[in-house]
């Protein structure tokens, strides 16, 4: 036993550098200020959009085709185009991303150099600017010799490439959150590693995978850059009706309208932005709902 005695103060007082010291208060104030600025920008942005777009927030916006008259024009093909492109993107990116994540997380040897190289690159790819994926898809299309780039499947391909790393990363995190004991329990009953993944690990990770995938898709929904590069900026007077169909999407339509000189089109662009915001909020709410409702607490 040590014989050192600690000098114990009689009364509990203020500790130096405690919660209400000037330094701590200044730090708290700085944190609150940062938060305030961030939220302020968001609120102002949404408010300005809503105020500007409200006059054209009507049925014609959703039901009409674009046209020369800003009071009559609508975003119907763009809304349908966005849905087509996002659905196709999801169909391509989610199975591929989930499969890649399962391989990396459950089967690949983490000490293998090649696997570590792949992992590092997945992390890096998640930070690559969207336009680069557009360029990549563009060159792929050129190699295939396609002259018409404005097809749903081509746009979806670039967006699928864009969100693939995000889906891989979030799926891996969801798989990692499943306790190792569940895998061991399954294996100890004589299940094969593949059965363990399909019947235990993957189902337990589905809420996390769904949340991550929806958030990735909502990023793709708001993306314009790669699609602009792939000829998405077109004037359409028909509904997209297949994978090879021509299309435009909401962000591109907004870009198009806001670059027109007439003020009426700016109002239209703001109204279309409201539609895009509403779609994004719906998707993000769904992601939050899934997370809260189904996530397993171990």
């Amino acid at each position: 036993m040590s014989t050192t005695t600690l000098s114990v103060p009689r009364r509990l007082g203020r500790a130096k550098g405690g919660e209400d010291s000037p330094k701590a208060m200044a730090f708290m104030a700085a944190l609150w200020f940062c938060l305030f600025v961030a939220v302020l920008f968001l609120v102002v942005l949404i408010a300005v959009t809503v105020i500007e777009g409200l006059p054209r927030w009507d049925g014609a916006l959703l039901g009409n085709y674009p046209g020369p008259d800003p009071l009559e024009a609508g975003a119907r093909p763009a809304i349908l185009g966005s849905m087509w492109v996002i659905a196709t993107t999801a169909t391509m990116a989610i199975p591929l991303g989930v499969a890649a994540a399962i391989h990396l997380e459950e089967f690949a040897d983490p000490t293998n150099r090649f696997n570590r190289f792949v992992e590092l690159n997945v992390q890096n790819l998640a930070a690559v600017p969207a336009i680069v994926y557009g360029l990549l898809t563009l060159s792929a299309v050129a190699l295939l010799g396609l002259t018409n780039k404005n097809m749903v499947i081509v746009g979806a391909m670039s967006l699928a490439l864009l969100i693939l790393p995000v889906i891989i990363i979030s799926t891996r995190e969801a798989l990692r959150a499943v306790p190792i004991e569940i895998r061991h329990g399954s294996l100890a009953l004589g299940a094969s590693p593949l059965q363990t993944v399909i019947r235990q690990t993957l189902p337990a990770a589905v809420p996390g995978i769904a949340t991550g995938s929806i958030l990735a898709l909502s990023r793709a929904l708001g993306e314009a850059a790669p699609l602009l590069l792939l000829g998405g900026l077109v004037f359409l007077r028909f509904d997209p009706n297949g994978l090879l169909s021509g299309y435009t999407t909401l962000p591109i339509q907004i870009f198009n309208w806001s670059s027109r000189p007439q003020a009426g089109f700016h109002t239209l662009a703001a109204a279309a932005s409201m539609v895009l915001l509403a779609l994004l909020m719906a998707m993000n709410s769904l992601a939050i709902y899934i997370r809260n409702r189904f996530q397993q607490r171990w």
Binding site: H184, G185, L189, G190, A204, Q296
Partner: peptide, 29 residues
């Protein structure tokens, strides 16, 4: 492992029903 089973330190039921927990082993094997 099908002939030599194992029970772990921490109870590790599967996130499934009681019935499915029991039926899991026979099903996968």
């Amino acid at each position: 492992r099908r002939r030599i089973g194992m029970v772990f330190q921490k109870p590790n039921p599967f996130p499934k029903s009681i019935f499915d927990n029991i039926a899991y082993g026979p099903r996968v094997s």
